[in-house]
């Protein structure tokens, strides 16, 4: 039983590694932890397009915030 579980975990890890490599190839900018969460979300059936949109929006927000911060610092 445990060996089966172990094998499953190993397989999952392997799959994750592969996905991580694909993510690197595609230059998505996701780190390992974020990717883990994303995979879990996808497994739960979240719409991937929407998820992508959310991530992009949050990134954009961050950029805006840092820019405005920089501007205020300059002023």
């Amino acid at each position: 039983m445990t060996s089966e579980k172990n094998a499953q975990i190993g397989q999952a890890r392997e799959a994750f590694q592969m996905l991580y490599q694909v993510s690197q190839l595609l230059n998505t900018g996701l780190d390992a932890e974020t990717l883990t969460i994303c995979i879990q979300l996808c497994e739960l059936g979240v719409n991937p397009d929407k998820l992508a949109l959310v991530i992009k929006e949050i990134r954009k927000m961050g950029e805006h915030a840092t820019q405005s911060k920089a501007k205020t610092l300059q002023l």
């Binding site: 799959a15 592969m18 996808c42 497994e43 059936g45 991937p48 397009d49 992508a52």
Partner: peptide, 26 residues
Amino acid sequence: LFAKLKNTFVLKQPVSVLSLLLALSE
């Protein structure tokens, strides 16, 4: 990688993950 990924049956929604990655790719 994709060929290997097909062989592991851990993921239930590999296509969905991939499409997410594609959408995020720059």
